[in-house]
Amino acid sequence: MTATAASPTAPTVSTPSTLRRALQQKRLVSGAVITLIIVLIAILGPLVAPHGQNEVVGPPFSSVGVLGTDYLGQDVLSRLLHGGLAVLVIALLATLFGMVVGIIIGVVAAYSGGWWDEVIMRLNDVVLAFPQILLALVVLTAVNQPRAWMIVVLVGISHAPRVARVARGVALGIVSRDFVYAAEALGEKRSRVILAEVLPNMNAPLLAEGGLRLTYSIGLVAGLGFLGFSTNPEAANWGQMINENRLALSTQPWAVLAPVFIIGVFTIGTNLMADGIAQLSQRGD
């Protein structure tokens, strides 16, 4: 890899480190900064919020406080600061779950090849026929009160076939390389070949995919809250806040627009970051 990275016109210049190249990527840096700010707001928010998340500070939809009050007279700013952590944690766990399941499916399909590959990818196509939100909604039909782990699993499962496609594509280019044959010839176990030889060589494209999946996870988790499927009807949650205060969009717009803005900025940040990583990994090889 180092041989190809060196530019042919300036052979004396040494290859810049990955970190240095990452810092020169404007999209990556700005995306990472935006994401970091929102993550900090979500984590530190509950500590600095002026009021509790269920504390009534004035009449409903009034202009008491910086961003006014919501449908029950609770402080919008405080609920905004309290409401990020749930979205962030569920979205992160869902992304992680979807990535792990998807990578396992994709790598096993690519490594087994032949008939297994065909069957696994066909089944994958079946799940792909469901738009991501539909998969979650269909299961929630028979559930009375959704729990946090259900949303993690549902959003994760809806990512898995999409991740599997990418992981299979990347792994196909690796499983036929000489070092994999060498490991097999040495009599390594299948699981060890996959874990020690195949996986470590596919981390850059998968990292980009992970960033993208995080963007969608945030949208889906907040979206489920917006559609009214929340894990805890009383707690503050960005998606749910939009749902609760929607009718007052013309009279107290901040109760709706504040969570809308913060979700929007968050997804823009993670998406820019994912694109930056993707460009970096393409140039890196």
Binding site: I242, V256, V260
Partner: peptide, 11 residues
């Protein structure tokens, strides 16, 4: 591309 549809819609 990253914005959820409900965010675009409400904006």
């Amino acid at each position: 591309a990253g914005l959820p549809e409900f965010v675009t819609g409400i904006l």
